[in-house]
């Protein structure tokens, strides 16, 4: 009985593992960087594969937009095929794009990117059902 259950669990993990990519908003491009508390206007995105432990960092060129940064950052993250986003806060437009694409957003995340990934794996964060900040939250000077 016990053996059977273990086998089932293993299969599930493997299936999820195929595309279990998550995205962490980051101030810099390494796993030791600090989590950027903004989503749409974060400095970098780190795409982390929880299956292989490999990651890829990408500068967020949307951060400079006067308007629509959240929407286009949402678009970018969705196009990378991620299943979850770890960040500090998410605004209304970005939240709409991410939720339309079925991407879970975990907010209130801080510390280093590595700590965020560990926390996520341990199930420490709660998915945000609604935006956590208003429009233009991440604008410089705000």
């Amino acid at each position: 009985m016990r053996v059977k259950i273990t086998a089932t669990v293993a299969v599930v993990i493997k299936e999820e593992g195929i595309s279990m990519k998550i995205c962490i908003t980051s101030e810099d491009k390494t796993l030791d960087s600090k989590v950027d508390p903004r989503f749409g206007r974060c400095q970098n995105f780190i795409f982390f594969d929880t299956d292989t432990g490999k990651f890829e960092a990408q500068e967020n060129t949307n951060a400079q937009f006067q308007g629509g940064a959240g929407i286009q950052s949402g678009q970018l993250v969705v196009s990378k095929g991620v299943k979850a986003v770890l960040t500090g806060n998410v605004g209304p437009n970005a939240h709409q794009v991410l939720s339309a694409a079925g991407v879970s957003v975990f907010t209130g995340v801080s510390g280093t990117v590595k700590e965020a990934i560990d926390g996520y794996k341990k199930g420490q964060y709660k998915a945000a059902d609604t935006p956590t900040v208003g429009s233009k939250f991440g604008m410089p000077g705000k």
Binding site: F65, G68, I71, V78
Partner: peptide, 17 residues
């Protein structure tokens, strides 16, 4: 930057926001 296009995959329908 007022438009997002989700192409959809795995049989999931795309959508334009």
């Amino acid at each position: 930057h007022a438009i997002a296009v989700l192409s959809g995959n795995n049989g999931k329908k795309g959508s334009v926001l």
